[in-house]
Design a protein around this nucleic acid. Structure first.
Lengths: 149, 149
DNA sequence: TTACTTGCAAACGTTTTGCACGATT
DNA sequence: AATCGTGCAAAACGTTTGCAAGTAA
């Protein structure tokens, strides 16, 4: 388990929620996954680990974790129902189109862009939301191998 | 109706699809909406205009329009099932959080960012996808009025 | 005329809800 | 002990599919 897990348990307590087995399990699964997971995938993984939780609990847990900004949704081309662990200070995502791996990168570069757009449009720009989609190094290696004779 | 509509009908013909009343209606509704619309909203608007189309047709029409890149999906915090007209050369969106109005802006500024991330991560970055969320001038005016005594 | 398109009804998968039981604090 | 959390079953919801009838080319 990543070292983020401890702060999660604290945050759950702080918010007045109880730390149950089901929540530990969902948190552990998400925080150790290199890619975004759907509720159904989390449920299946938890069951395969021997946990006896229900799919409904996964939904309700994700709802609370999202509310506490401990997890966030990833928006793919085809839908937006997969979750990843939220990482403080790394707001932007880099997704691999092949293996669906998720990486983070810092977004300081966007502040000036947001200001420019704000000035140009008259909008008060409050949030910027950026995702890059591409192919990760591992998958690039595989693809180039396949292309060879 | 916006002047984009003509090119739409051409593109539909080019792709071998037929230009039907239902498609004209869906196109007209989307191209004249200042905000993203869900299939259900498009259906209701069409019915309120006296058209006799079914919700299924709206789904199937959107599917084809998206395939032809005549419309695109907008991803909100809560879901990603609303559609807007696609505008050539304006890849990025600026959403009003209050009235859900959609504006476009050019994204040349992001090419260098994508290159930097690509170099740093080893990813082959193929797409960048940016949305800004804020409050539009009109809604800002309303908000500030409400705040006054 | 022929193939594409439509509408309805029904199927489907996902997400939510009601309620009694169980677990955490 | 009191409250919060859980699981099951069933309902609700959005979306897709099969098929007969209708329509554009």
């Amino acid at each position: 388990m990543k070292d983020t897990s401890n702060s999660w348990t604290q945050k759950i307590n702080t918010n007045g929620y109880r730390l149950t087995g089901a929540r530990r399990m969902v948190i552990d699964i998400i925080s150790n996954s290199p890619r975004a997971l759907t509720p159904a995938e989390i449920f299946i993984e938890a069951r395969s680990r021997g946990a006896k939780l229900g799919l409904v609990t996964v939904y309700r847990t994700l709802e609370k974790l999202e509310e506490m900004t401990l997890v966030e949704r990833v928006h793919h081309e085809d839908g937006c129902h997969a979750y990843i662990a939220h990482v403080e200070g790394h707001q932007h995502l880099l997704l691999c189109r092949v293996c669906h791996r998720v990486e983070y990168f810092g977004g300081d570069d966007l502040v000036s862009l947001a200001e420019t757009i704000s000035r140009r449009s008259g909008y008060e720009v409050q949030e910027h939301w950026l995702q890059l989609v591409g192919i990760c190094p591992d998958c690039r290696a595989l693809v180039s191998k396949e292309a060879l004779p």
